[in-house]
Simulated assay, not measured.
Amino acid sequence: MKESTKEEIVSWMKSLAFAVIITLVCRQFLFSPITVFGESMSPSFEDHDKVIISKTSKIQRFDVVVFDAPDNEDEHYIKRVIGLPGDSIEMKNDTLYINGKRFKEPYLTENKENNPFHKLTEDFSLQEKTGKAKVPEQMLFVMGDNRLNSKDSRTFGLISYDAVIGEVKFRIYPFEAFGPSS
C-alpha cells in the first residue's frame, strides 16, 4: 500500500472518530431525538411522533418536557409543565388558576371541541392531588394535553427537575408537522 493511501485512510478514520465523539457529546449534553409513545399529549403530539429535545433549556410554565417516568423506570413521559416551584394550582369549571390568576389553555381547544361535554379536566387543587399547597422547590406539576387520557401529576404527583431529560423544541416526524414545537 502506498504511503499516501495509508495517510488518507488514517485521516478518514480520525475524521470519523471525531464526528462520532461530537455526536455522542451533543446527544448526552445538548440535544437528543425522542419518540413520543402514547396519546396523552394528543393532538399537540401524537403517538410515534419524533421530536428533538434540548437538554440545556430553562424550564418555564407551559413548556413541553420529556422526563423519566416516576412509576416505570424504563419509560419516559412527555407532558406540559403547569406548575413551577412556589405555584399554587387549582382547576375550577375546566379553567386553570395558578396563584389565583386565570390562565387560558389554547392547546386544549381541539380536545374541548371534540368532547361532547366540553369539559376535559375535573375540578381539583394541588393540595388535593399532592398534599402540598404550593409546588416545592426543585419540583414541577405536569399534565398531558389529552386530559381525559393522561397519566400525569394528578395521578403520580410532582416530578423533580432531576427527572427532566429535556424540553421539546422541534418535531421531525411526521413530515407534514415538521418544524418548531408550539
Rank of each mutant, 00 (worst) to 15 (best):
S44G: 13
I34S: 00
D145Y: 01
G38D: 08
T35G: 01
I59M: 09
S160H: 05
K55Q: 02
K134I: 13
F170L: 10
S15L: 13
S160W: 10
F175C: 06
F124L: 05
T130C: 11
M143H: 05
T95S: 15
I165V: 14
F62N: 05
G86D: 04
M1C: 09
F103V: 02
V164P: 10
Y173P: 02
R61M: 08
E167C: 12
P116V: 03
I21F: 10
V168A: 13
K79W: 01
K79E: 02
D162Y: 06
I52C: 03
Y161A: 04
S4F: 09
S150V: 11
T56R: 14
V51M: 01
K169A: 04
V142S: 09
K132H: 04
S44A: 13
S42H: 12
F178C: 10
K119H: 13
Y161I: 01
N99P: 04
K101A: 12
K50Q: 15
F103H: 13
L140F: 14
M41L: 08
N149P: 00
G144S: 08
M41F: 03
R154W: 11
F141C: 02
G100S: 04
S153C: 03
K79T: 07
N149M: 12
C26E: 00
F37E: 13
K79I: 01
V36D: 00
H76G: 02
G131W: 04
R80S: 10
I53Q: 03
M139K: 15
I21H: 07
A19G: 14
D162C: 02
R27D: 01
N99K: 04
T5R: 14
I89A: 00
V81W: 11
F175N: 07
F29I: 01
E75V: 04
A69Q: 02
F29K: 03
G86W: 05
P116W: 09
F103A: 04
S44E: 11
S32D: 15
E167V: 15
K55H: 01
I52G: 05
E7F: 08
P136V: 09
I53G: 00
K14R: 15
I78L: 10
T155M: 00
D49E: 05
D145Q: 11
M139A: 12
T23Y: 11
K55G: 04
F31I: 08
K134D: 07
P116R: 06
I165H: 12
F141M: 03
S181P: 00
S160V: 03
I53T: 04
A133W: 07
K104C: 00
R154F: 08
K2D: 15
E176T: 03
Y107D: 02
V25W: 08
F67K: 09
P106V: 01
D123N: 14
I9C: 01
Q138N: 15
V25M: 13
G131D: 10
K79V: 06
V135H: 10
H48Q: 13
V168K: 08
D49N: 10
D145I: 01
G38T: 01
N149Y: 14
F124D: 10
D63Q: 05
A177I: 00
E73C: 02
F170K: 03
R27I: 09
